[in-house]
Write a protein that binds this DNA or RNA. Structure first.
Length: 587
RNA sequence: UGGGGCGUCGACAAGCGGUAAGUCACGGGUCUUUGGAACCCGCAUUCGUAGGUUCGAAUCCUACCGCCCCAACCA
């Protein structure tokens, strides 16, 4: 989808997957190293990325994807994409498609694309085995009752009257559950563990529930019962031969249950059971980003509430949104390498993401000129009707860079911000009597400021130094200021969309007591400019092209909104702006 | 009134008993036809706090403080 100018050989492609540095180790690689040392898995490393297909992937998932697939790369292992589709009430094919596409877009190829639903029969068989072993029973309490019986943090749970059902009755009832003889909620299969456990997850957790009339997006109506996450996940891992099952911190309290499932069903020295492998769950801290919201609930609220224009709105932290904003997979991967992996809750500064984006696009995006907020400039000593073309390099820092022709004429546009009638201190740019350089064209000096009735500056009358073609001072005099410009009669008038942070607070949850988090939304997160004036070479830009508008930022030709010959440009990220910083400091 | 986890620079994060890596941010400078990029320099005598063990502690022990997670037939 992305195009770029033929890059001069001097610049290496920005981070081909193979040339990316191996990130430093973390507590997970330490674990794996120890396992390899001990021969726990015979040196095998098998991971998986297990999304539930009930929503779009976001940058937090990217961290997990990079982690799991990164481990595959680091240890020459495997990494499956496995859809954790055990809840038919919320899952849809639309999501499985977008998720797989996002993973591949990020640059990873799963060893296999699998589904928990692929294992429904095996998972079921394991359940019968548990019943046979007296380790699971069919309970017929209502949801309400079950909750009562389970107790709470301070009060132990008490046994359900159905806990003592015999193996035969349990097996019969469970098979009838499977046969679809019961209604939702009538029965549930529970593990028989410990109602007094201080870990609530061990107080006889549900293993199977009835969802008789809810079709599953893959298995249709063949199953009236569905396994819970806690039960299906360890088994799916085991069936796939996963060695290290990596998930986020909130699942930590579930690990004893994960281990219980493996322990009860895996082969033992004493004999064969349902499977051989003994995967281990390892938790890490999920990503939090400043000025961003990543909870599924809040993301849905943004979309449904019309605060953004859909899941792929360029302001969204979804992979679809980031992609449309012009953020590259390379930048995202570099970002994930930089943030590291640990167990402590943390909030990463978006500036780190922005740096990763600029760092990647700096190598990759050709430089072009665009005037977002035009101010007319007339070169009084340049003949009316005359036109000439200047050569401008796409990659100015690279010797021998490819170039394009940029037309020049008597009437131009420069950026309104590049002129000040009363220059502040340290102002390099244009003001009455001052000289600046027009990038790649010539030096000009401002002689006259023309205003309209309301006093607004509408035109500048300038002269050019005839001997400064290309922008070099004929006598070597220093000209600090350089402005980008566009020839008015040749300008391509375009729509440019300036995207900014979606929230105005580093932590959108830090809203005053009682206020909704959405009050932290940044009202200026999208500014649409209809009349931007671009150099004409941009007319033929393919959707998905990355460019740098010099001195402004990196922009991306929107794949959806662009029309042939009329690209619409999304600002991916601004350039660092030292002047803005100086200005802010001065005031 | 329970259980589990975590606390190293403004933000991430190495460190695993031998005397505080790196990145971003920030500040200063060089260079510059992007106030961009690049390059150079600076930025934790100190590791939540208080004790203890040790020749030596961010690393071990004890206590305390703070933050996060757990009572869905969600994942």
């Amino acid at each position: 989808m992305s195009t770029s100018e033929p890059r001069p050989a001097a610049i290496p492609p920005a981070a081909a997957q193979s040339s990316e540095a191996t990130p430093t180790g973390n507590f997970i690689t330490d674990r794996i190293d120890a396992d390899n040392q001990a021969g726990t898995y015979g040196g095998r490393v098998a991971t998986r990325f297990p999304p539930e297909p009930n929503g779009y992937l976001h940058i937090g998932h990217a961290k997990s994807i990079c982690l799991n697939f990164g481990l595959m790369g680091r240890y020459s292992g495997t990494c499956n994409l496995r859809f954790d589709d055990t809840n038919p009430e919320t899952e849809e094919v639309e999501y499985v498609e977008s998720i797989e596409g996002d993973v591949r877009w990020l640059g990873f190829s799963p060893t296999a694309v699998l589904y928990a639903s692929d294992y429904y029969q095996g998972i079921y068989d394991c359940a019968e085995q548990l019943i046979l072993d007296g380790k699971a029973y069919v309970d017929s309490l209502s949801v309400e009752e079950l909750r009562q019986y389970r107790g709470n943090y301070y009060i132990k749970g008490i046994e359900s009257p159905y806990r003592s059902r015999g193996v035969d009755e349990n097996l019969d009832l469970f098979r009838r559950m499977r046969a679809g003889e019961f209604e939702d909620g009538q029965h549930v299969l529970r593990a028989k563990i410990d109602l007094a456990s201080q870990n609530m997850n061990l107080r006889d957790p549900p293993l199977y529930r009835i969802r008789k009339n809810t079709p599953h997006h893959r298995t249709g109506s063949t199953w009236p019962i569905y396994p819970t996450y806690d039960y299906a996940h360890p088994l799916s891992d085991a069936f796939e031969g996963i060695t290290h099952s990596i998930c986020t911190l909130e699942f930590e309290a579930h690990r004893p249950l994960y281990d219980w499932c493996i322990h009860e069903l895996a082969d033992t020295p004493a004999g064969k059971r349902l499977f051989r492998s003994r995967p281990q769950q390892i938790e890490f801290a999920r990503l939090a980003l400043t000025y961003t919201v990543l909870s599924k609930r809040k993301l849905i609220e943004l979309v449904k509430g019309g605060h953004v224009h859909g899941w792929d709105d360029p302001r969204m932290p979804t992979l679809a949104g980031l992609r449309r904003r012009g953020i590259t997979p390379e930048a995202l991967r570099a970002f994930c390498d930089r943030i590291g992996v640990a167990r402590r809750d943390s909030m990463v500064d978006v500036a780190l993401l922005e740096h990763s984006i600029r760092d990647n696009l700096n190598d990759k995006a050709p430089r072009v000129m665009a005037v977002l907020n035009p101010l007319k400039v007339v070169i009084t000593n340049y003949p009316e009707g005359k036109t000439e073309e200047f050569d401008a390099p796409y990659f100015p820092d690279v010797p021998g860079s490819p170039t394009r022709k940029v037309p020049f004429s008597r009437t131009l546009y420069i950026e309104r911000d590049d002129f000040k009638e009363v220059p502040p201190k340290k102002w390099y740019r244009l003001s009455p009597g001052k000289e600046i350089r027009l990038r790649w064209a010539c030096l000009i000096t401002c002689h006259e400021v023309i205003k309209d009735a309301s006093g607004e500056v509408v035109e500048l009358r300038c002269t050019m130094d005839e001997n400064s073609r290309g922008g070099n001072a004929p006598d070597g005099r220093k000209v600090l200021g350089t402005s980008h410009w566009v020839s008015a009669p040749h300008a391509l008038k375009s729509e440019v969309r300036l995207y900014d942070r979606l929230f105005r607070l580093p932590n959108p949850a830090d809203v005053p007591e009682g206020q909704d988090w959405k009050t932290a939304l940044n009202p200026d997160s999208l500014q649409i400019i209809d009349g931007a004036m671009l150099e004409p070479s941009l007319a033929t830009s393919e959707p998905g092209r990355h460019v740098q508008f010099e001195r402004i930022g990196y922009f991306f030709a929107d794949p959806l909104r662009s029309k042939p010959g009329a690209p619409v440009w999304n600002r991916t990220v601004t350039l660092k702006d030292t002047w803005a910083k100086l200005e802010a400091k001065g005031s």
